[in-house]
Design a protein around this nucleic acid. Structure first.
Ligand SMILES: [Mn+2]
Ligand SMILES: [Mn+2]
Ligand SMILES: [Zn+2]
Ligand SMILES: [Zn+2]
Lengths: 138, 138
DNA sequence: ATATTTAATGCAATGGAAGTGCATTTATTG
DNA sequence: CAATAAATGCACTTCCATTGCATTAAATAT
């Protein structure tokens, strides 16, 4: 069991107060968040700092960006030990048309997708839209 | 074999010079195009007109919008007789990381995706990224 | 401990793209 | 031809992502 500080350091991310706060914020969320979500949670902090913090987290692979089709980038912590760039680690995302929340279905890996001759698959983005468990009333 | 005019009329789209031009432009493209692509092809036309024409085509289901993860909406003609809203008609899209082109793989339908209990799937977006046939040199 | 260097943060500004209100032109219909 | 409705053009707005540069804070060397 490592502390957040240790995790950040192990990924070559220098520990700052802001980074710890943002990490904890993401860790507490069960859903993917937008930059604005983070902004609203930390009103005193500058938007740019939040933006760059997320980008740093993304580069160092403790956060992955999610394109759920809303046109707004969302972010979520990676599973510990995940390698988002590897196809076998890719999970699908669910976007609720009712509450607009987007969640990682980390248990649901993306199936092998066949592409035509001559095409090389490097990455797959799979987003399912519909009604989430909370909104479907069950 | 129906003319473009007949196709538009059958979909309740009034025929105008601009609409015919845009339709032909889309029909000649083998790849999905952005609004800017259309803008560049028709410099005399106003962007709003092009925008609204595409939106009309989309509503009337002769064009589908593609979110390939670049953050810029792309559009492509639907197959004749397709119903983009129906899950079984959904095909996957391929985005080339080299030439940045996005193409419809209309032959490749999206496989049935399992979602957890309580979730209801209404729509699926599947984008494969990698190297296209032209760029892979084969 | 202090000076030097490097990284993080804050502020201001930019740019791209989507979208809208309203006036004008064009097409349709009585 | 007059009346009506739709399409087009122009100006403007909003939202989000991104960058340059000055400032502050942290890390390292002296
Ligand atoms: Mn995820
Ligand atoms: Mn397509
Ligand atoms: Zn929901
Ligand atoms: Zn290519």
């Amino acid at each position: 069991m490592q502390t957040i500080e240790q995790l950040l350091e192990s990924k070559d991310i220098r520990v700052t107060a802001m980074r710890l706060l943002i990490y904890k914020f993401l860790a507490n969320k069960q859903i993917a968040v937008t930059l604005s979500d983070i902004e609203n949670a930390f009103e005193k902090a500058d938007r740019t700092t939040l933006y760059r913090t997320i980008k740093t987290f993304e580069e160092k692979e403790i956060v992955h960006q999610i394109d759920d089709g809303t046109g707004i980038n969302k972010y979520a912590l990676c599973e510990s030990g995940c390698h988002c760039e590897i196809e076998t680690d890719l999970h699908l995302h669910f976007h609720c048309n009712n509450c607009s929340e987007t969640i990682c279905l980390t248990e649901h890996k993306i199936p092998q997708i066949k592409v035509p001759e001559g095409f090389v698959s490097e990455n797959v983005n799979l987003v399912v839209k519909g009604i989430c468990d909370k909104c479907s009333g069950q």
